[in-house]
């Protein structure tokens, strides 16, 4: 009897060690240490990738440019197409064949995701279904207890075994890009870009610095609108960014609106697309009235214009930031 229990204990111990060794940060640290000790190559992922159920996103050099103003469905289709571009032709063909699609165009993918989202109850489950297969999406939905809809991609991904990690990353990338493509614009289209995204000479400090958003020149008191629905994560005031609002749109996408004159929302508040969240101003470190509009993706800030078909007018020189 004792020996039989010992055998059962040994099997259970092996399961615990397997899980800890491959699926926890301390296990990753030990694997790296062992690999260094024995001079072997280690394929251990970064420690922080063990959080968020591994729903990390790939770094995209440049997302596919949108050709027109996109509906949320078409935006998700373009996001999925951009993510698919990251895969090998064979993998792409497999994903399309499994979904019964002849074309990997944004329109075809958007339609497919829309239909599946209706059937499965959420766009997260639909995108997971596209990249991991219907069986994996069903398994994840059932195990997460979400039934029809409700669960985030992270909650769904937690239910899947690690062999799906790369596919989940593609699904996360598609959702992130789809959410970014679907963003509206915080100001009227006539607002001029007075300072673009990227490295530029700082108008006040002189030195070359990275500008993490774009500046849109507008008179004080202009209504600033939420680019999409989301939750206000921050509404604060400091002497550099001035009065700022940060809205989290989910799927790793957030937008930031700086240098406002007045904030009309508070942290924790749910905002709708187009809702006035602030009145623009000249607060913080600024040389003139403008809105600093910033788009943040999981890997860092991105140029909001990359995700927008219509280009606002650009000012030839000058700057109003930081």
């Amino acid at each position: 009897m004792r020996r039989a229990r010992s055998l059962a204990d040994l099997v259970l111990a092996a399961l615990c060690l397997w899980a800890a060794w491959y699926h926890t940060p301390p296990g990753a640290l030990l694997r790296t240490a062992f690999a260094r000790l024995f001079g072997a190559r280690s394929a251990t992922p970064p420690l922080l990738s063990y959080y968020g159920a591994g729903a990390r996103t790939f770094q995209l050099a440049e997302p596919l440019p949108p050709r027109a103003v996109l509906s949320p469905g078409a935006a998700l289709g373009l996001g999925a197409q951009s993510a698919l571009e990251r895969t090998s032709p064979a993998d792409r063909a497999q994903v399309l064949a499994r979904a019964g699609l002849r074309s990997g165009s944004a329109d075809a993918l958007g339609d497919w995701i829309g239909r599946e989202a209706q059937r499965q109850g959420s766009r997260e489950a639909a995108v997971l279904s596209l990249f991991c297969g219907e069986e994996a999406a069903r398994f994840a939905r059932e195990r997460s207890g979400s039934g029809r809809g409700g669960a985030s991609l992270e909650e769904l991904a937690r239910q899947l075994p690690p062999l799906y990690a790369d596919r989940v990353a593609l699904a996360a990338t598609a959702l992130t890009l789809g959410t970014a493509y679907a963003l509206g614009w915080p100001l009227p289209d006539s607002a001029q870009v007075t300072s673009p995204f990227g490295v530029r000479a700082h108008p006040l400090l002189g030195a070359r610095r990275f500008h993490s958003g774009i500046d849109l020149g507008i008179p004080v008191g202009t209504p600033v609108r939420a680019a999409a629905e989301g939750i206000v994560r921050r509404a604060s005031d400091d002497r550099v960014s001035g009065r700022l609002v940060l809205v989290d749109h989910g799927s790793g996408v957030s937008t930031v609106y700086c240098h406002n004159d007045a904030l009309l929302v508070a942290p924790g508040e749910v905002v709708t697309r187009g809702q006035v969240i602030a009145l623009s101003g000249n607060s913080g470190l600024s040389t003139g009235p403008h809105l600093h509009y910033q788009l943040d993706l999981p890997r860092g800030p991105a140029d909001p214009l990359l995700f927008r078909a219509a280009r606002p007018p650009q000012l030839a020189s000058g700057g109003t930031e930081p």
Partner: peptide
Amino acid sequence: ARLADRLRWFFLPLALCALVAVGVH
């Protein structure tokens, strides 16, 4: 089974540590 019985002193502490580590994560 006999081997497992002899090695309990070794693998049980490791199993406890690993299970708690997985739960903490």
